[in-house]
Simulated assay, not measured.
Amino acid sequence: MLKPKDKKAARAPARAKTPRKKPRSRYSSDEVREIFRRFAVQRPEPKGELEHVNAFTLLVAVVLSAQATDIGVNKATRGLFAVADTPQKMLALGEDRVGDHIRTIGLWRNKAKNVIALSQALIRDHDGQVPADRDQLTKLPGVGRKTANVVLNMAFGQPTFAVDTHILRIGNRLGLAPGKTPDEVEKRFLDIIPQDYLRHAHHWLILHGRYVCKARKPECERCVIADLCQAAEKTSAIPAALTPIEIG
C-alpha cells in the first residue's frame, strides 16, 4: 500500500528534463577565419614532427607516440626504421627486437606487441599497404581515431582533424572549441574551421600549443592571435594587434 508521500509523488507529473546547452565557440565566424588566416601566413606548409619514410612508418610512429613525446619517439625509431620500414620487415624483426629498439618509450612492451600485430593485420588484410580509410585503420591493433586522422592527413592529404592534448587544451583555454573529450573538441573544431583551412588546421594548433600557448605558461608575447584571444589566462606581455607583416 502506498504511503501518502508516495501517492503524492505518483500523482505528480514527471518533470521534463531541460536539455543541457552544449558549449559554443566564443568567436564569430569572421574571427575564426582570421585566426586560421594568421596561422596560414605564419606557417604556410606546417609539418608534423614525427620522423617517417612512408605511410607504414608514419603509422607505427603515431602508435608509439601515445603518452610519449615526438622527440623521444624519433630517437627510438631512427634505428628501428633503418632495418624495418615495411610490415614484412617489421614482422620478420619480431616482437623482442622491436622492443629492444623502443624500450626508451613509455609502455614499450605493449606497443611492441601492437606494432607486430598491426604489421600482421596489414599483410593479412591489406596486402601490406596502409589503407586510406578511417574505419579500416581503426580496426588495426593500437590504432584509435586520433592515430587514424593523423595518418590520413599526413600520408594521404585528407582534411582530417586529430585532437591531441595540445589541441584539447587550446580548444578549452581559448573558448575556441570547448569540450570535455577529444571527440567533443574535434566536433566543435570541425563545425567552425573554414573548409579551405582544414587541411593544415590540426598541425597549426598542435605547433601553437607546443611552442606558444604552452600548458604552464603561455607565451602571449609571441602569439600571432593574441589580440583576438579570449582566454581568461594570459601573460602580461601581450602585443598590440598584429599585422600580416608582423606575423610573417
Rank of each mutant, 00 (worst) to 15 (best):
P23C: 08
G94C: 03
P141Y: 10
V151A: 02
A241D: 02
H200E: 04
W204Y: 13
H101M: 02
A40M: 14
A55Q: 06
T77A: 01
Q136H: 09
M1P: 07
L190I: 11
D133W: 06
L174K: 02
A82K: 08
Q129L: 11
C223V: 14
R33W: 04
C229N: 04
R78F: 11
D70M: 08
A241M: 09
D30P: 03
A76L: 04
D100T: 08
I192A: 07
V212I: 14
T86W: 03
F81H: 05
T165P: 14
R43W: 15
S119K: 05
R43I: 15
Q129I: 07
S25H: 09
W204G: 10
I193W: 02
R43H: 07
Y211T: 15
L140Y: 04
P13C: 10
N153D: 10
K17L: 15
K21C: 04
P46W: 07
I35G: 04
I71F: 12
Y197K: 13
A241S: 12
P4W: 03
A55T: 06
T69H: 12
E51V: 13
E31C: 03
F81A: 05
S28T: 12
D133H: 06
N110L: 01
A10Y: 03
P244I: 04
R216A: 15
D191G: 08
D191A: 07
R210H: 07
G106Y: 13
N149S: 12
H208L: 09
H202C: 09
P19C: 02
N114D: 07
H52Y: 06
L198W: 06
I167T: 06
K3V: 15
Q195K: 14
R15I: 10
A162R: 04
V150M: 05
G144W: 10
T243S: 08
R11L: 13
I105F: 02
G128E: 12
R11C: 12
C220M: 12
H208M: 04
T57H: 11
T243I: 07
E49K: 01
I116F: 12
N110A: 08
V151E: 08
D85C: 07
A232Q: 15
Q120G: 15
G209P: 11
K7S: 07
V185Y: 03
A82E: 10
N74L: 01
F189N: 02
V163I: 13
Q158L: 11
A12M: 14
P244D: 08
V53C: 13
K5F: 13
T69C: 08
R43E: 11
R103E: 00
P178D: 05
A82N: 05
A14S: 12
A215L: 10
L190Y: 04
R169S: 03
V83F: 04
R97G: 00
A76V: 07
Y197M: 13
Q42F: 02
W204T: 01
E95I: 07
A14Y: 06
K139D: 06
R97Q: 12
D227I: 10
R210W: 05
I35Y: 00
L107A: 13
L93C: 07
E95K: 08
E219A: 11
V163G: 04
G99R: 06
N110W: 00
A16W: 13
S25D: 08
V62G: 03
